[in-house]
Simulated assay, not measured.
Amino acid sequence: MPAETEAHQRIYMAFPSSGYTLGDTEEEAEAARTTWANVARAVAAFTPVTMVVDPSAEVDARRHLGDTVDYAIHELDDAWMRDIGPTFVRDEEGTLSAIDWNFNGWGAQSWAAWGKDSKIAAAVAGLEGITRVQASITNEGGGIHVDGEGTMLATRSVQLDPGRNPNATEAGIEAEFARQLGVSKVIWLDRGLTRDNEEFGTRGHVDIVACFAAPGVVLYHDQQNPQHPDYLISQEVRQRLAESTDAQGRQLELIAVPAPSVLRDDEGWVDYSYINHLVTNGGVIACAFDDPNDQQAARILAEAYPGRQVLSVDARELFARGGGIHCITQQLPRD
């Protein structure tokens, strides 16, 4: 699997069309549509975007996006393309394939629907005319992050989740990641952020906790307020990363990215995170929260990804629905 910092030919997204993602009122639905569209426009400044759209949402999608994106009409349950779409990999000759992770609603959660979304990996592979490879485990794109040189970040709370991979072992999961992604070293974190481990979360995706900015360089979510339960999680993550080496034997350089200063919303502790950004070609599409730490985070990302322009998009409507900018995007590497 190439590093996310490599060149991209296209970014895939999915447009919100139903259920909790749209919410209970037309005002909430428009807030979701507007935020997804804002992200798509920001991405399109650097990389072409294909928006997968349920037939019922085509009018709304075109109303919000016009000719900014390409459209692919396909039935959807939800709109988290990082998780429902395939992970793209290259073989030794450089030929792309698409890994289908057997999406099952983040571990067959009671509130999730996935009958349609489970077919999106195959649909996207078909759009690109590339081979789909069925994984032997259940995973989502948000559950992994790689450096492109054999190292992966992952959480036990996701990969060893009985709702995804009953009776799985670390060794078995690592063997499948080696087979599908060319990974030779998995750095295991125990869990994700607090809210993401609650009822309506993913059970702990790594992509709001830590990510590779470059081989040997890891950005991590740094909750600095001891009142927030993620304060202890940030300490655990920092310690685990500090003790780790990558597949090449390098000690990791750690870059703390302070969490937003806001601690709670109407539903409880927030999991707002600047880690959940998209790097694509000349840009970094970053989450913003109308928070005093937004500018500091953007500066850190600009330094971590030199030569790329940081565009920040208000991501509060995304996080209110369970994710961020990285969660709704999936990169297709350049041939």
Results as ranks from 00 to 15, higher is better:
165 N>L: 07
64 H>G: 14
141 G>E: 12
170 E>D: 11
72 A>H: 12
169 T>Q: 10
147 D>Y: 04
251 Q>N: 13
223 Q>C: 15
278 L>V: 00
46 F>S: 04
282 G>H: 11
108 A>V: 03
252 L>C: 10
331 Q>K: 06
162 P>D: 09
301 L>F: 02
332 L>E: 01
44 A>K: 00
187 I>W: 05
207 D>E: 07
262 V>W: 01
214 A>C: 06
224 Q>W: 12
209 V>G: 02
70 D>F: 00
235 Q>W: 02
274 Y>D: 07
26 E>P: 03
185 K>N: 15
190 D>K: 14
101 W>V: 03
182 G>A: 11
194 T>A: 08
128 E>M: 00
50 T>K: 03
5 T>L: 01
329 T>H: 02
257 V>K: 02
98 A>M: 01
244 S>E: 09
114 W>P: 02
249 G>Y: 07
134 Q>C: 05
218 V>C: 13
80 W>F: 08
92 E>A: 14
90 R>H: 11
26 E>F: 03
45 A>V: 00
299 R>G: 04
289 F>G: 05
125 A>Y: 01
41 R>E: 15
278 L>W: 00
82 R>S: 02
264 R>Q: 15
72 A>R: 10
46 F>A: 08
311 L>I: 14
156 R>G: 03
102 N>G: 01
150 G>K: 06
196 D>S: 03
318 L>S: 10
222 D>A: 15
180 Q>S: 15
296 Q>A: 12
281 N>L: 03
269 W>S: 09
217 V>W: 03
302 A>W: 05
319 F>P: 02
246 D>F: 07
121 A>H: 07
15 F>C: 09
155 T>Y: 07
132 R>F: 03
117 D>Y: 04
258 P>Y: 05
40 A>C: 11
54 D>P: 05
176 E>F: 14
138 T>G: 08
181 L>D: 09
187 I>Q: 02
135 A>W: 12
